[in-house]
Nucleic acid binder design. Structure first.
Lengths: 220, 220
DNA sequence: AACTGTGAATGCCTTCACAGCT
DNA sequence: AGCTGTGAAGGCATTCACAGTT
């Protein structure tokens, strides 16, 4: 059932393929060749073939990959049998946006959100109950969530992460702009939005500079 | 001024180092050794040395990297002389969260947000004017923003991206869950939150399975 | 004695390229 | 004729390890 442990980049692309495949199915497509799926995903055909090879999914040279079968296989790899309980810590603007985005998504239900702010606690936020942070450990003990989303201030992120991991959480998606330290066996995905923006600004500036120097040609 | 073109991963870490450095300066630290900065950043000391080497910043073996000097050098690399005008497309929950996060951050001012929803248009959202999408091209022409943040539905993302690029934008941060196609010379940073969550859930599940099988030892 | 800067080694990921299949 | 599955090659990023410096 587990198969051989897949590499993180492959899993990311599988998640993307799944979404593309379900879109194609909805449009009535029955099968695709690697280069077709590749062009939708923005990767090479060889990459698609390798990725699908790594989960043991095969095509026929004549028809390509059967989409119904592929969708089922991807579901089996990416989803648990039961839905994976998830918690979210930090009901600020970003936390609320993510709650709104994932409410009613089926798999990965966010079972509770936590915050220290008394004005938020007790309410429903986009369909999710907001509870005081003090109740975190009892929720961890009772509901055994395995995934947590951190949308809280950087100053509190490490302490909360430690508490979550101690309580059994094994996957963290961190939006706080600080590098977290997690023990081996715990998966951490860090999404530092400021960093992505600064990176983008750097390359945008470079591109503009390059274009401008090409315009009046004379340099170099 | 441009130097040799840096690799994207290096630029990402430089952005992180900058934040760490400014925190250290605030606490009164004057200099750090590569292994100290590395431990804050969660990378190896060799990595820090290589990254700083790539921007030509050097230390003295006795004191390490001078933080004041380093902060200045990083600023010079990561910031433009003038602030880089940025626009945001799609004032949904996520768009609003990002507007809130970046308002008043100095560099990278979001000069306008765009949406088609008439109930949003005309208002200020977290200090940023929300304008109708129809005005996008005139704003592109007048203000020449170079960076854009896409927080809109997947179905519209590619068309808007094309319009932005035609209007001079050279860096995109895309939150829409779809792979965008951009021409060479345009930098694209894609942040597919669903993908990150699914990846994390996969590895969390794997970790739990591994722990459970270790508990009653006999399997293999 | 301990650090930096860096050539060389390693390791990982992606792509090539082709035999095999239909 | 055109596709897949995959060994081998290639390219890129990280780490090693050490000469040089203070």
């Amino acid at each position: 059932m587990a198969g051989n442990p897949l590499n993180a980049k492959v899993v990311g692309r599988l998640s993307l393929y799944r979404r593309l495949v379900s879109g194609l199915i909805r449009r009535g497509t029955m099968a695709v060749y690697s280069h077709e799926l590749a062009s939708h995903a923005g990767v090479t055909a060889a990459q698609v073939r390798r990725d699908l090879m790594s989960i043991g999914f095969t095509a026929t040279p004549s028809r390509g990959y059967d989409l119904t079968e592929l969708a089922r296989t991807l579901d089996r790899f990416l989803d648990s049998a039961a839905a994976e309980a998830t918690v979210l810590i930090g009901v600020g603007n970003l936390g609320r946006a993510i709650l709104a985005y994932f409410q009613g998504q089926g798999k990965l239900p966010i079972i509770a959100a936590f915050d220290t702010d008394p004005s938020k606690v007790g309410r429903m936020v986009h369909g999710c109950p907001c509870r005081p942070l003090a109740e975190l450990s009892s929720v961890l003990a009772e509901r055994r969530p395995r995934v947590a989303i951190l949308t809280l201030p950087a100053s509190e992120a490490q302490a909360i992460a430690d508490q979550l991991i101690a309580g059994g959480v094994r996957g963290l998606v961190n939006f706080a702009p600080i590098p977290l330290r997690v023990p081996p066996g715990v998966h951490l995905e860090s999404l530092d939005i400021t960093m992505f923006l600064e990176k983008t600004a750097y390359f945008a500036r470079l591109a503009v500079a390059r274009e401008e120097s090409h315009e009046h040609e004379g340099s170099r």
